[in-house]
């Protein structure tokens, strides 16, 4: 009797979903159907997006991969990949690509962080003006900007002329057709991509945190390092990743300002196709770059999980 009693008595505490699902209550069937219908409707709404992604991303990338599996004679082989491992020149290109991307990102952080910080402190109207200045380069074509740098930086360019006229140096400095020029141009072009998310995240930092830090005894420098800087990290990381990944596949600026001395993966791909019509190797390069980029993103994701970095409730 006692055991039976226990069984039939309702269990105290919140009912679990499992029990609920099994439970054949009023309208449970209809409600279940409604839920299912809603799910299908949502799926239906996202079909255009899925088709778009498939046609412009998945299919081209798949095709690229497919092409890379054929050697020069059109026979299925891995020779495109093995060649990359054998030949020093290819690994050098990848090293260059990563080196340029790394230094560009680093310089962008060094220049962009103080700039974004400065903008974030300005009163609204001035900040808007400052942001305009940051975004201004976007209004001119990439190519124009890159060639403008060529004019400024070359042997007889503005910088060398002024420098020598002012007697700062005697022989022209090599500012272009090498890593220097590439970095100068790339940093200039990439800076807005770092500043935008960084500025955004700085703007969301509640000033009360800084006040609280000061109240607890932090002088302005300490308040910055212990509170403001960590809270701005999500935006900084977002900007760094965007810049780094964009750099990996960059073409125009290193091609023009590097003057053939800085060869990035994208440039090699261009020569392979334009000069040698070698789609197989070019595709293999593309695939490797693609995979490496994914790996970079994956490492970034593992090191800084978005829910920890980006999901921090700033307005607790």
């Amino acid at each position: 009797m006692k055991t039976l009693d226990k069984l039939t008595k309702p269990v105290p505490g919140p009912r679990t979903a499992k029990i609920y699902k099994r439970w054949d209550g009023i309208n449970s069937e209809e409600l279940g159907q409604d839920e299912l219908r809603e799910k299908w409707a949502l799926f239906g709404l996202s079909i255009p997006a899925i088709i778009l992604v498939l046609t412009v991303i998945a299919i081209p990338v798949g095709w690229l991969f497919w092409l890379s599996l054929f050697n020069d004679e059109g026979v299925l082989s891995l020779s495109n990949y093995t060649r990359m491992l054998d030949s020093k020149s290819y690994s050098r290109i990848f090293v260059t690509t990563f080196k340029v991307s790394f230094f560009t990102t680093l310089l962008c952080v060094l220049i962009g962080y103080p700039l974004a910080y400065f903008l974030a402190q300005l009163p609204k109207r001035w900040a808007a003006l400052g942001m305009m200045a940051v975004l201004f380069p976007f209004w001119t074509s990439l190519l124009v900007r890159t060639y403008a740098w060529l004019v400024v930086l070359q042997r007889k360019g503005l910088i060398n002329q002024w420098g020598m006229e002012l007697g700062w140096w005697d022989t022209p400095i090599k500012l272009v057709h090498n890593l220097n020029g590439t970095l100068i141009g790339m940093v200039h072009i990439m800076l807005p991509f770092l500043i935008l998310p960084l500025y955004g995240s700085m703007k969301t930092i509640d000033f009360d945190y800084i006040k609280a830090a000061a109240n607890l005894g932090a002088n302005p420098v300490k308040a910055f390092w212990h509170v403001f800087f960590p809270l701005s990290l999500p935006g900084l990381f977002a900007g760094m990743i965007v810049v780094f990944v964009l750099c990996l596949g960059f073409f125009v600026t290193p091609a023009v300002l590097g003057g053939g001395n800085v060869i990035m993966v994208s440039m090699k791909i261009e020569t392979l196709i334009d000069l040698f019509f070698n789609f197989g190797t070019a595709s293999a390069l593309g695939v490797v770059l693609f995979v490496l980029t994914l790996m970079v993103l994956f490492v970034a994701y593992k090191l800084l999980p978005p829910d920890k970095v980006l999901g921090q409730g700033h307005n607790v």
Partner: peptide, 20 residues
């Protein structure tokens, strides 16, 4: 005197606990 030298404890209206 600047705030960080005043040595007063303060509980903010929204608490201002550092989320990081």
């Amino acid at each position: 005197m600047p705030p960080h030298k005043r040595d007063v404890g303060m509980v903010f209206q929204n608490y201002a606990l550092f989320p990081h």
